[in-house]
Every structure is written in structure tokens, then in C-alpha cells.
Design a binder for these strands. Structure first.
Lengths: 135, 135
DNA sequence: ATATGTGCAAATGGTTTGCGTCAGC
DNA sequence: GCTGACGCAAACCATTTGCACATAT
């Protein structure tokens, strides 16, 4: 399967509209973690007529279809990124809002180990690990 | 310093009102992670006249004073817990909303190590670690 | 041709705030 | 008594939704 969001969109049998094409391409090109307002701004640069409501509907659809992943970093708005990127986690500076991406195999093991330690059944569920550290 | 929220509230020089006393006691007694609506419900059981606005103002004040810690688990509402409890982190089941508390010294080291690896200055900042795992 | 997507504006849900009144110190 | 807290209702902000019209297939 192609790595492009738009192609996966078609593969999923979703209708390909002008707006969806643009939202897909915006997120394809993004190397950050844009919120809906930002996605809309970037999309509007290509099609000034696109509405925020459509962006909201589109990212929600894409997320439910597994094309995008929704992130919530505690600032009240959702952020999105291409689901097909290599797996990674995030470290957020709550003072500055800076987002640090990283990959650490230990986290994966840790999550599974902790859940297992507590007798928790993992099948089909998504687990989010929230760790806090004050310095 | 006493371990009771109310005492720390006084120590901080905050005015002790009937409502603040109740909110402090509600969170003192809580062994879960109540959101504002829940805190208000529990508080209203003692003083039916207490308003949600006051609960919002109080938990915010307490958080800024370091008496409480605010948590956001991705469901759109903030949750609070006593800041003086032993340090721990959280694992959330995004399907059921189940909150699993755990302590794991590796997470601490991991957070510091990752930030350091990236040349990030930690001083005075609070870092949140967000890890995702699908099963 | 028909089912589905879009834009607009109104509605929602959590949280904040202005204002007049009340209470802690 | 003065400063700050409370209750109420309106305001806010991110997100969702109803409806009339437009468009992909």
C-alpha cells in the first residue's frame, strides 16, 4: 500500500473531494504537529473557500479510518499527524509547549510490562502513557 | 509541613473560606482522579449552595499554589489530585477511560535521559511524556 | 441520479469572567 | 472596613451539527 495519505484514503473507499485532497496533502507535507486551526490555515492557502468545519470533519474521518493519529498534549486542542510515520512518542515542555519527538524501545516494553503487572487485558485497546517530571 | 491540603492552603497565605475548605477536603478524601463536575457534586453534598464557578476558581488557585496537580487524559476535561501524594504516573485505556496508576523509576530516568540526549535544558520546566501503544 | 460532502451559522461542552453582593481577616 | 471570594449569568474557545446546496461516483 502506498505511503501517501491520499492513496490510502482512496484505498479505504472514501470519496476523494478537493478539500480532502488538500487536507491530506497538508498533513503529508507537515513535519510538525499542527492543530485544526493551523491545518485550516495551510489548506486555505490553496483553497481560500475551505471551511474549518470541513477540516474538523475531515481529520476526524481520517483518524477514524486510521490515516491520521490524533494527539492531545494538554493545551486544549487536538493535533494530528500521519499515522504511517514511523512509531514514536512525545515529550512536551509544558512551559513552552515545545514538542520533542523521540523513539525509545524501552517505553514500549514498559507499557506492556506495567499493564501486564496489573493484570490488564491489552487486546484491541490503545493505551496512553502519561508521565510527569518537574525539574 | 502538614500533609493536609487545607493546612498547606493556610501556609500559603490563602484565605480559608467555607468553599475552599470543602474542596480541599473532597480532594483529600479522593482516591481517584475527579474532574471538576465530580468535585462539585461531592462538594455540593456538603454545601448545596457551592457553585461550579467557585470549584473551577478554587482548583485553579490550588494548582497554581502547588497544592493540587492538574491532569489531562485526553477526554477533554481536567482532573485533579493532591500534589503531596507519592509521585506516580498514569496509564490510560483510551477505549474505557480506565486510569491505571503506577510507579516506575525507569520512566524518570528515561525522561531525563531523552531530554538530555536532545540537548534540552530542563531547569524549572515540567515535562510531560506521552507514549502511545496499540494492541 | 443518488448518496454523500460542504459551507454557514447555530449549538454544545468544558472553562473563564464581569459584576454586584457577601465574608474572611 | 477593606480586600478578596462567591454566585449567577454571560462570554469564550475548541469542536460538533442541522440544513440547504453542491459534487463525486
Amino acid at each position: 500500500m502506498s505511503t501517501k495519505i491520499l492513496d490510502r484514503c482512496e484505498t479505504m473507499g472514501l470519496r476523494v473531494t478537493g478539500q480532502r485532497r488538500i487536507v491530506a496533502e497538508v498533513l503529508e507535507a507537515a513535519d510538525d504537529h499542527p492543530d485544526v486551526e493551523t491545518i485550516h490555515a495551510r489548506a486555505a492557502a490553496r483553497d481560500p473557500g475551505i471551511s474549518v468545519a470541513t477540516v474538523y470533519r475531515t481529520v476526524k474521518l481520517f483518524e477514524e479510518s486510521g490515516l491520521l493519529e490524533r494527539r492531545e498534549f494538554g493545551d486544549g486542542r487536538a493535533r494530528y499527524e500521519d499515522a504511517k510515520r514511523d512509531h514514536h512518542d512525545h515529550l512536551i515542555d509544558m512551559q513552552t509547549g515545545a514538542v520533542i519527538e523521540f523513539v525509545d524501545p524501552e517505553i514500549e516494553a514498559l507499557q506492556e510490562r506495567i499493564a501486564r503487572r496489573l493484570g490488564y487485558d491489552l487486546k484491541g485497546h490503545r493505551l496512553e502513557l502519561f508521565g510527569t517530571k518537574r525539574n
